[in-house]
Deep mutational scan, measured.
Amino acid sequence: MQRVNMIMAESPGLITICLLGYLLSAECTVFLDHENANKILNRPKRYNSGKLEEFVQGNLERECMEEKCSFEEAREVFENTERTTEFWKQYVDGDQCESNPCLNGGSCKDDINSYECWCPFGFEGKNCELDVTCNIKNGRCEQFCKNSADNKVVCSCTEGYRLAENQKSCEPAVPFPCGRVSVSQTSKLTRAETVFPDVDYVNSTEAETILDNITQSTQSFNDFTRVVGGEDAKPGQFPWQVVLNGKVDAFCGGSIVNEKWIVTAAHCVETGVKITVVAGEHNIEETEHTEQKRNVIRIIPHHNYNAAINKYNHDIALLELDEPLVLNSYVTPICIADKEYTNIFLKFGSGYVSGWGRVFHKGRSALVLQYLRVPLVDRATCLRSTKFTIYNNMFCAGFHEGGRDSCQGDSGGPHVTEVEGTSFLTGIISWGEECAMKGKYGIYTKVSRYVNWIKEKTKLT
Rank of each mutant, 00 (worst) to 15 (best):
D249A: 09
P414F: 11
Q90T: 09
E61T: 02
V447S: 03
V154T: 11
G229R: 13
Y444L: 05
I299D: 03
A149V: 13
Y312A: 06
L60M: 06
H415M: 04
E73Q: 01
V374I: 08
P101T: 06
I214L: 09
E231L: 08
C141N: 01
N135L: 12
N48V: 01
R373C: 04
F87C: 00
R226P: 08
S184K: 12
F221H: 12
P177D: 01
K247R: 12
N59K: 03
Y341Q: 14
K152L: 10
T386C: 07
T215F: 06
E340S: 07
S99E: 12
P375W: 07
G125S: 04
Q167Y: 09
W453K: 00
L318Y: 01
I297E: 05
I7M: 14
F176M: 05
N222Y: 13
Y22T: 11
E340T: 11
T332P: 00
S448W: 02
D315Q: 01
E193S: 13
G402N: 10
F196K: 15
K137W: 08
Q370V: 03
K446Q: 06
N42Y: 11
N104H: 13
F71K: 05
N310Y: 05
G236R: 06
Q241I: 14
Y305M: 02
I284C: 05
G21C: 07
S411Q: 15
T158M: 13
E165K: 12
N222L: 11
L376F: 08
V30S: 12
L372M: 13
W261D: 00
N203F: 06
C102W: 02
K247G: 10
N222M: 14
A266P: 01
A307E: 07
C252V: 00
L20F: 14
T381H: 14
C119Y: 02
T422M: 04
I443N: 01
Y47T: 09
Q216S: 13
M65T: 05
S184N: 15
P239L: 01
G402C: 06
Y161R: 05
T381E: 09
G398N: 03
E124R: 06
V451C: 07
V56M: 06
L211E: 06
F345C: 02
F121C: 06
S114G: 12
H415V: 03
D405R: 12
P197D: 08
N48T: 02
C97N: 03
I275G: 03
R373A: 09
W88G: 03
F395W: 01
L32C: 06
P333V: 00
A307G: 12
T290R: 09
G413T: 07
T417W: 01
R3H: 11
K293E: 10
L52P: 01
P235V: 07
P375N: 13
Q241D: 04
T190K: 12
D198L: 07
V353P: 02
T386L: 08
L460Y: 14
C28M: 05
S423E: 03
F238K: 04
D93L: 09
T85V: 09
G413D: 06
Y441M: 10
V183C: 05
G363M: 08
K446G: 09
S187Y: 13
T218E: 13
G442E: 04
G246I: 05
R140H: 10
C407E: 04
N100G: 06
N80G: 08
G412A: 15
T271Y: 07
T81G: 10
K293C: 05
G179E: 01
R162K: 09
E420Q: 09
L425R: 00
N203S: 08
E98T: 13
G179A: 01
I299T: 14
K152P: 09
T215A: 08
R75V: 07
P197A: 14
C134H: 03
Y371P: 07
I7L: 11
D150E: 11
V248Q: 13
V263S: 02
D95M: 08
F123H: 11
S365W: 08
P175Y: 05
Y450W: 00
T264V: 05
S365K: 15
V174T: 10
S169Y: 06
F395N: 01
D33R: 10
D315K: 00
Q57S: 01
I299A: 08
G280W: 01
D198Y: 08
H34E: 08
T29P: 03
R404F: 15
S114K: 07
N166M: 02
N283M: 11
N393I: 02
F345H: 03
S350V: 12
Q216W: 10
V92R: 10
L367G: 12
A307I: 08
F388H: 15
E171G: 05
E231C: 10
T194M: 13
R191P: 15
T16D: 04
G363N: 07
R373W: 04
L14F: 14
S184V: 15
L32R: 09
N313Y: 10
E208I: 15
A397H: 02
T133V: 11
K146V: 08
G229V: 10
V277P: 00
F399N: 10
L52D: 09
L327N: 01
I136M: 14
E418L: 10
Q57M: 06
V92Q: 14
N42R: 07
V154K: 12
C155Q: 01
R83M: 08
P324K: 06
G229D: 12
V277W: 01
I262Q: 00
C141R: 00
M8I: 15
I454C: 01
C407I: 06
E124L: 09
A149Q: 12
V353K: 04
G412T: 11
K438Q: 15
V273K: 12
I309K: 11
P239Q: 01
T381Q: 12
M65K: 08
F144W: 03
D315N: 09
A265I: 00
M437F: 13
L52I: 05
Q90F: 09
V153P: 11
T194L: 07
D212C: 08
L41Y: 06
A233D: 05
F123I: 07
I428T: 03
E456D: 15
N304P: 02
V174A: 08
E129H: 09
E67D: 03
T417M: 04
Y161T: 01
T461W: 07
L346Y: 05
A317E: 00
L318S: 00
V368N: 07
R3K: 09
F55W: 08
R162C: 05
R140S: 05
T264I: 03
A397D: 02
F144P: 00
S99N: 13
A233W: 07
Y371F: 12
P324H: 05
T215Q: 07
C157K: 00
G58S: 13
D110F: 08
N127P: 03
Q57V: 01
V269G: 04
T461G: 09
E53C: 00
L32I: 14
G254R: 01
A397N: 01
D95A: 11
E98F: 11
Q2I: 09
G398Q: 05
F144D: 00
T186E: 14
F71H: 04
K89P: 05
W240A: 01
D405Y: 12
G413I: 09
E208R: 11
A380C: 05
Q216T: 13
S220Q: 11
Q2A: 13
A366P: 14
V416I: 09
D405E: 15
A233T: 09
T276S: 11
S70Q: 06
V30C: 06
I299E: 05
W240N: 00
E66S: 05
